[in-house]
Amino acid sequence: MIAALTGIAASPLARAALRFSAVALAIVLFLLSIRRTGERVGRLAERLETSEEVNDVQRQMLEAAARRPRSHDELGDRLRDGRF
């Protein structure tokens, strides 16, 4: 079997074909790697955008909680004054 492969690889045409195949395989693997990296980056960007939205909503909730009336009396005062 090894002798047959050695005989095939001995011809210049076969060596050129093997080189071409190796280069083509390397290019395909490189492109697949780039594609996977792009998908990963896209998922990370989407996760970042989602977390920014969540943080914005939480900040708004905290700001609203800071402005809330502290007691029933303060709530009544605000309702009477029309500031609520």
Rank of each mutant, 00 (worst) to 15 (best):
Q58E: 02
I2C: 05
R40G: 03
H72G: 11
A14F: 10
S51K: 14
R78F: 10
G82C: 15
G76R: 02
A24D: 03
D77G: 02
M1Q: 04
I27G: 09
A3V: 05
D77P: 02
A65H: 10
P69N: 09
F20P: 02
P69S: 14
R43Y: 11
L75I: 01
V28F: 12
R68P: 00
I2S: 08
A22R: 14
A26Y: 06
I8Y: 05
R80I: 15
I2K: 08
R78L: 12
R80A: 15
L44F: 08
L31P: 01
A14W: 07
A17C: 09
E52I: 12
S21M: 03
L79G: 03
G42M: 00
R59W: 06
L79M: 11
R35T: 04
V23K: 14
A4N: 05
A64S: 14
L25Y: 13
S11V: 05
Q60W: 13
R43M: 11
R43N: 11
L62F: 12
E52D: 10
E39L: 10
A65T: 01
R15P: 09
A66Y: 12
F30I: 09
A3P: 01
L5I: 02
G7W: 01
R43V: 04
L13A: 09
E49I: 14
V54E: 09
F84A: 07
P12T: 05
E63K: 00
L62A: 10
N55G: 03
T37H: 07
L44P: 00
R67I: 06
G76Q: 02
R68E: 14
S21R: 05
V54I: 15
E39I: 03
M61L: 04
V28S: 14
R68M: 15
N55A: 06
L29Y: 08
F84P: 00
V28C: 13
L32C: 13
T6S: 06
T6N: 07
R36L: 15
